[in-house]
């Protein structure tokens, strides 16, 4: 605790940076995954292509992706946008399948009833299919959030500051207090993300507990 008591301010700054780098890609990734997942469900042939391709993206090592981003986007090497973009790729990789499977979990008779009531395509998606996909979607988002919190820490290696700095610095200079603070902070942050997403998921699905 000794180390933390003198570096509280720094840790707080890094924590906020970490939240930002993990949360923004989560939101953007979800917005990108929604149409892709919908398309994977809409066209039978698209499902294996979209789900497999997006899944493969997840296997690209994070360090490689962080380094590649400036080349692809034309950004500066130290720009945090590189990290946001790379994390968005990972989020999309995880969520396309969740969206597709979540939409696929909507019972066929419910879908047919909605059409027969006179819902048009897009409105049915918003009013019937998406709300019913929320449980599967929430499960996917929780995995993506925890994964993001973990992967973002690697960004220290390309000079983008966040909680990962405590790990690299603590390791290089053998400061146990800093190392442990970094690990515990990442863990608590992951738990907080998980807790918030679960809370939102529950608020959106009162019917699952009825």
């Amino acid at each position: 605790m000794g180390w933390l008591s003198t570096h509280g301010g720094d840790v707080w700054t890094l924590l906020l940076q970490h939240v930002w780098l993990a949360a923004v890609p989560l939101v953007i990734g979800l917005l990108v995954a929604l149409p892709l997942g919908w398309a994977a469900r809409r066209w039978r042939a698209a499902y294996p292509i979209l789900v497999t391709t997006s899944g493969l993206l997840y296997t690209v090592p994070s360090l490689a992706l962080f380094i590649l981003m400036p080349l692809i986007l034309g950004t500066r090497i130290l720009d945090p946008i590189n990290v946001v973009a790379a994390m968005t790729v990972y989020t999309v990789a995880l969520l396309v399948r969740s969206v597709a499977d979540g939409l696929g979990a909507v019972p066929e008779d419910v879908r047919a009833a909605a059409t027969a009531m006179g819902y048009r395509g897009f409105r049915r998606l918003l009013a019937v299919d998406l709300p019913l996909a929320v449980p599967v979607l929430t499960a996917g988002l929780r995995v993506a959030a925890v994964s993001n919190v973990s992967i973002v820490s690697v960004a220290s290696l390309i000079g983008v500051a966040q909680l990962g700095n405590l790990l690299t610095d603590g390791y290089n200079r053998a400061i146990n207090g800093e190392l442990i603070t970094g690990i515990v902070a990442c863990l608590l942050l992951a738990l907080a993300f998980d807790w918030i997403i679960r809370g939102i998921g529950r608020a959106l699905t009162p019917w699952t507990r009825a």
């Binding site: 019972p107 008779d109 419910v110 047919a112 009833a113 909605a114 027969a116 019937v128 709300p131 019913l132 699905t205 019917w207």
Partner: peptide, 10 residues
């Protein structure tokens, strides 16, 4: 329809 096809979330 047969199983009513009610919207479970409403």
């Amino acid at each position: 329809i047969q199983h009513a096809g009610l919207f479970p979330h409403r």
